[in-house]
Amino acid sequence: MSMLETTRTIRTLDEGLTRRERVVLAELTEDVTLEEIATRLFVTRNTVKSQVRSVYRKIGVSTRAEAVAWAEAHGIR
């Protein structure tokens, strides 16, 4: 990846995902349930589900495995 592509990726990531969405995405990379993520973040499971849907839409994926692969490719963990 060129420096320009890296800069665009970082800019897209910074502009596209909220801080909380980045936290939720990082949590998805671990082997935990949405309920466990909700407990860790002191929110409801439905809040996490909503944030996960938003992350999926923003990064253009439709499964947790795809989101995890995207996160790892973009240095989120």
Rank of each mutant, 00 (worst) to 15 (best):
R11A: 14
T12N: 14
L13Y: 05
D14T: 07
D14M: 12
E15G: 07
G16T: 08
L17R: 03
T18I: 07
T18F: 08
T18L: 05
R19A: 11
R19E: 15
R19V: 13
R20P: 00
R20H: 08
R20L: 11
E21P: 06
R22P: 01
V23Q: 13
L25Q: 08
L25A: 10
L25G: 05
L25R: 08
A26M: 14
E27Q: 13
L28E: 01
L28N: 02
V32A: 13
V32Y: 07
T33C: 03
T33M: 06
E36S: 12
I37G: 03
T39E: 14
L41W: 02
L41E: 14
V43H: 10
T44V: 06
R45E: 03
N46I: 09
N46P: 04
N46A: 14
T47Q: 10
T47N: 11
Q51K: 10
Y56N: 09
R57E: 13
K58E: 08
I59F: 11
G60V: 06
G60S: 03
S62A: 10
R64F: 07
E66T: 02
E66W: 04
E66R: 11
E66L: 03
A69K: 13
A69M: 05
A71I: 01
A71P: 02
H74K: 01
G75T: 00
G75P: 02
G75K: 00
G75M: 02
